[in-house]
């Protein structure tokens, strides 16, 4: 673990964007206390006020402070995407490990099912789930998680297939280990790295999809702010109040960019086969 951080710290880009990502998570965790104004407070005397000393990013059509709303939206996004990512990992990885190790018809059926799910664009799947479950926070989490879970099933199955051919797995069977023991003690420790990398690399996809859903009105419902939904409102006032778009757009870009670059850096750190480009 310390070795991981030592090697990671050599990657300057990774360190910078890692710090940025941590900052965003810090903002998300402390959102309640650091918002300069109440993000929900309507003030009809201050609608569409441009950025100023009191409202750094201006106010929207209800006079709500944009900066405060962006901060609260960060919390919502981080919560939803982290939970969805966890959901995808916790469903996809065990299924992938089980079918990969077990093989046979269970594997064929599962893999064809994931193939079918992978045919649909992720956002389509998510829309279907949200339509069924309703546009609640939990609904969005389940939708995004389920939409990404097939990816994790596939990747996990792939690495499980290669590890289960290792002689030490056969040696463990020959020593009398049961399948659960083999999955937990022999397969998982040897496949965790690519899965951690995959989870980090998919995080920005979750963020984009969460924003896309809420842009379409299928995400977290107003008045709770979310970046996509704020962007959707901002586009209606693009001519008279163009500054509305700056806050949520910048937050989204920074989050996705940081998460992507951190994912790359983690992959380079954990995967000895990737040659250092520098």
């Amino acid at each position: 673990m310390t070795d991981f951080f030592r090697r990671y710290s050599r990657d300057k880009v990774g360190v910078f964007f890692g710090a940025l990502l941590l900052l965003l998570y810090g903002v998300a965790l402390t959102a309640q206390w650091i918002t300069p104004a109440d993000p929900m407070a309507v003030n009809l005397r201050e609608v569409f006020s441009p950025p100023s000393a009191t409202h750094w990013l201006g106010t929207d059509q209800f006079g709500r402070d944009i900066l405060s709303r962006v901060i609260l939206a960060t919390q919502v996004t981080v919560k939803v995407t982290s939970a969805a990512c966890l959901f995808a990992v916790l469903t996809g990885v065990p299924i992938g490990m089980f079918v990969g190790y077990r093989g046979g018809w269970i594997e064929s059926v599962t893999m064809r099912a994931t193939d079918m799910l992978l045919i649909f664009p992720i956002i389509m799947l998510a829309i279907v789930v949200v339509v069924i479950s309703g546009p609640t926070e939990t609904g969005v989490i389940v939708a995004l998680g389920l939409a990404q879970a097939p990816q994790f099933v596939r990747i996990t199955r792939g690495v499980t297939l290669s590890i289960k051919e290792e002689l030490y797995v056969e040696a463990a069977i020959a020593a009398g280990s049961g399948w659960l023991h083999i999955l937990a003690r022999h397969i998982w420790p040897n496949i965790s790295t690519p899965i951690i990398v995959q989870a980090t690399l998919t995080l920005p996809v979750f963020v984009l999809n969460a924003s896309a859903l809420s842009y379409l009105g299928l995400g977290v419902q107003p008045p709770t702010p979310e970046w996509g939904q704020m962007l959707n409102e901002a586009k209606d006032h693009l001519i008279n109040a163009p500054y509305l778009i700056v806050g949520p757009a910048a937050a989204l870009v920074i989050f996705v960019l940081s998460a992507n670059l951190v994912g790359d850096a983690v992959q380079e750190t954990l995967n000895p086969k990737l040659k250092k480009r520098k």
């Binding site: 290792e166 002689l167 030490y168 056969e170 040696a171 463990a172 003690r185 022999h186 420790p189 040897n190």
Partner: peptide
Amino acid sequence: FQEPMTSLNPV
């Protein structure tokens, strides 16, 4: 087994 190099779990 034949291969002592690979019959122990490396981790």
